[in-house]
Design a protein around this nucleic acid. Structure first.
Length: 202
DNA sequence: TAGGCCATCTGGTCCT
DNA sequence: AGGACCAGATGGCCTA
């Protein structure tokens, strides 16, 4: 896992290959659930316990109550109310985690690595680290391209530039960080809309 | 069998 | 008060 933390395109490529045969072999990820180890099982379990209260969940509640994890009479509620409150909190948390996993699946689907049933699905941490490296690699490639285009435009010396390449309107990477934003969100296109600091500003 | 990864439950904290 | 977020604990499944 340590290798995932390294930066740069080469590192990314090596990594992507270690997770699949080809770094850029896109493929259709199966529907929901896990292609590899233990996958179907988790998905099945989730489906089983999501929504309504499962027997399993009730047992867990009983056990917790017995084990003293649930303070008897906490918040001054009747056990029955307390119980339904706990169950609704559990359901919310489950839903939240499912949403998080959906988002991770979405991220996996756009990371170039071999998506195939025969290849084990990226773990959560691997997905995040790989995505980070991929973004850095793309930014680097873009910067290189920009330099190349600028060079080519210079070569045209007396003629009018052919394209507005290299200008900030086209290249939002050109140090356009939003002033005062601790996240430096402006470094990436469209990030400020998602940036907590910037979107919070009136 | 140990280690990795995961889902779920739970209590605490913060925010609205 | 209720919801969102977080981290710790627990237990199951899979792989080396």
């Amino acid at each position: 896992m340590a290798e995932l933390k390294s930066l740069g395109g080469e590192a990314y490529l090596a990594l992507a290959q270690s997770y699949g045969q080809s770094a850029f072999a896109y493929g259709a990820e199966g529907p929901r659930g896990y292609a590899g180890a233990g996958g179907g099982d988790f998905a099945g379990k989730a489906a089983e316990s999501s929504g309504e209260q499962s027997g399993e969940e009730e047992d867990a509640f009983e056990a917790a109550a017995k084990g003293g994890k649930l303070k008897a009479g906490g918040l001054g509620k009747k056990p029955k109310e307390q119980r339904s409150l706990r169950l609704s909190i559990n359901a919310r948390e489950r839903r939240r985690m499912h949403d998080l996993n959906d988002a991770l699946d979405g991220l996996r689907s756009v990371i170039p690595y071999a998506h195939s049933p025969s290849v084990r699905k990226l773990s959560k941490i691997a997905t995040l680290l790989l995505a980070k490296n991929y973004i850095l690699m793309q930014a680097q490639a873009l910067e290189e391209m920009r330099r190349l285009v600028a060079y080519l435009n210079q070569g045209q010396a007396l003629g009018a530039p052919l394209a507005p390449f290299g200008q900030s309107a086209v290249y939002p990477f050109a140090g356009s960080a939003v002033p005062g934003c601790p996240d430096k969100c402006g470094a990436f296109a469209g990030a400020s809309a998602l940036c907590k600091h910037c979107s919070d500003k009136p």
